[in-house]
Amino acid sequence: MPAWIFVFIKSAILLFVVVTAFAYAMLAERKIMGWMQLRPGPNRVGPWGLMQPAADAAKLILKEDLAPRTADPLLYRLAPFISLLTAFSVYAVIPFGASPAGIWSIGNVNAGVLFLLAIMSLGVYGISLGGWASGSKYPLLGSVRSTAQMISYELSMGLSFAGVLLVAGTTSLDGIVHAQVGLWFFIPELVAFVIYVITAVAETNRAPFDLVEAETELVAGFHTEYSGLRFGLFFIAEYVNMLTISCIATLLFLGGWDAPFGWTALPGVAWFVVKVAAFMFFYMWLRATLPRIRYDRLMAFGWKVLLPVATLNVIVTAVVIAVRG
């Protein structure tokens, strides 16, 4: 069997898994936000509302696909696909379990972390092109905000990666997880972890950094004009990005598939899923708790606090490693 068939099958399975995970992440978010706001959350479709994602999907598919007259015909239609493409292609390099034979990952890239950064930095195009191409003012404001915000926070995020890479001594995701056996990196690299969590929230445009789609100011931000399936694609992209960010947090800081305290009763993949789920929960928890911060403070925080701290963290880490030999 040629290698590409194997890759193809794995990609198809992974795509299915990720989309299902997206659907239930969305349901979980609505449930958890509901509980935190003293509501039961969706519970009408199927037992405990478990069929809600299917109902949502059906609704989005059946809705009319509108495009404003002022919209740019090509880019308006293309933008959601760019978002989706970048959101999904990250999974090409993420290893979900110890992968001696590469069963749990599609591609084991030498520069895995950099690949993640590269693809995530492309994610901004879907949002900013979509906002621009809508040809109306709120989406444009949203897209301009997203561009500025993502560029600002990507820097700190990259630097928080750098600390981990220095400690691990490799850029391959596989290698980083192996380097964490025994001591997960969120302990020695606590500063980097905190910075990563903050920048991750900003990078995925989630509350309290969801200035891009701030409904109180910008109606719905960059996707104001989108409806039906195209809106759905943006929606999927946002949640898949959240999943990605959680996967990266798991791989880089939370020990990947390494079982804590040597509890190897569960297989590595299960631990991976548990950790990702915990991080996702944290995301939703944050959203249910914190109000949106003001735009100028977001920028000030990114450039005047996060970036210097992240740089210092890299320098200190490098010095410590150099001194230790």
Binding site: L117, A118, S121, L122, V124, Y125, S128, L129, G131, W132, L140, S143, V144, T147, A148, M150, I151, E154
Partner: peptide, 13 residues
């Protein structure tokens, strides 16, 4: 792609 071109897009948009 991730930084310089985004700035281009920012200005042009």
């Amino acid at each position: 792609s991730g930084a310089i071109l985004v700035l281009f897009l920012f200005v042009i948009a």
